[in-house]
Design a protein around this nucleic acid. Structure first.
Lengths: 212, 212
DNA sequence: ACCGATCTGGTAGTCACTATCAAGGTGATA
DNA sequence: TATCACCTTGATAGTGACTACCAGATCGGT
């Protein structure tokens, strides 16, 4: 089973998937998440309820699509093992956010923002999102590689990763509250600095920005 | 409406509440959370399904009872405002855990442990628990008091609180994995030290414990 | 043109959860 | 002690998310 058929069937599948999700996000933003039923989404997208469930197993999945998990994991694997854990993880988070903030995907940025705001304001979505972050934490631990042998080092890695993701979440909430006006990578850097101290995150990524 | 009637009616209410929860936790542990229906819980507890919903609005509430939130908030309010944020929050978390680890409630400890293990292993419960921790974070921010005016200080407070709770969660997971054999307050201290450095948590709370 | 695989739709069912209404015991008052 | 208000419980019906199970329709390559 090849991964990217790029055949007509696969393209139509991706298309309906995007259509369903777009209508869902729109309805959720307009009427509210709980006030919108799966049937509403199906009807708006012009498909049957079954098709919605085929593409998105749960209602929450209509909003939560974790597309940055493996990107972050890749960055961590690529980072030099000599650095402290917090710098490796934090750097990967900032880099991944920089990819999102890249000027080529300004159309997506609005979409990500709306979804994030939905996620933060809806309890069910917020809970699932936090659990996804917890899963991401485990992926990060796996990407760090070696430390699995010593239980004490593993514990420290878990603590470091969870704290980094907590900082990320804080930055995301602030970013959403500012309607995405702030620069997300810098916001993540500030959150990391607020947690771990300015010295451990500051000196490396940005060469010259002493003011702020 | 007085808070503690201590009348027969209130006592019976608390009793049935305990009974329902005890049977629920037992069934969840035996058959699994998803494989146990609310009707099963009601039948095991000898009440009608309606009564279960009266006492526990959602199925998740049968496991998740946040009884340490206000305890932590109290400690934070009582802490001296001169200390750094991380020390105030971390100290409150350790103190609250010390209350739990007190030798007078060894019977409860097993109950807390089983619930925690259920919480960690069941996705739905884990998600709700993480969201409860997020709510606790907001309560902590409120308990810190003043910093609401300056948005930058508020952001730093959010970051610090989220990181502290992340460390707490890491400690709780480890504690549950060890079946509660480890000393929880010390475990929280180690997690906080792993995140913020040994100097910021170590010197203050325990006068003499240099080994470990 | 054929056949296998995939995508889609419909039906019926389970389960969490929410009204709404009726009946019982409990608590305080006359 | 008798009465009344209230609280707790129970039963019924309904909504909505989600999951089988089955039947067409369409696309893929041979």
């Amino acid at each position: 089973m090849p991964d990217q058929h790029s055949t007509l069937r696969a393209r139509r599948r991706a298309q309906t998937q995007r259509t369903i999700q777009a209508h869902a996000i729109r309805l959720f933003s307009e009427r509210g998440y709980d006030a919108t039923t799966m049937n509403d989404v199906a009807e708006a997208a012009g498909v049957s309820p079954m098709t919605v469930y085929r593409h998105f197993p749960t209602k929450e999945d209509l909003v939560l699509v974790d597309q940055y998990g493996e990107l972050i994991a890749e960055r961590i694997v690529a980072s030099s093992t000599g650095q402290p854990l917090v710098r490796r993880i934090g750097g990967a988070l900032i880099d991944a956010a920089a990819v999102l903030s890249g000027d080529d995907v300004t159309a997506d940025r609005e979409f990500v923002l709306v979804r994030l705001q939905l996620m933060i304001s809806t309890p069910a979505l917020r809970a699932r999102h936090l659990d996804n972050q917890y899963a991401l934490q485990q992926a990060i631990i796996g990407a760090l590689g070696d430390d699995a042998t010593d239980p004490d080092a593993a514990f420290q890695a878990q603590a470091a990763a969870s704290a980094c993701l907590a900082a990320l979440h804080t930055a995301l909430v602030r970013w959403a509250a500012d309607d995405g006006r702030t620069d997300l990578p810098r916001l993540i850097g500030k959150a990391l600095a607020a947690v771990f101290g300015d010295d451990i995150v500051g000196p490396a990524p940005t060469p010259g920005s002493p003011g702020d």
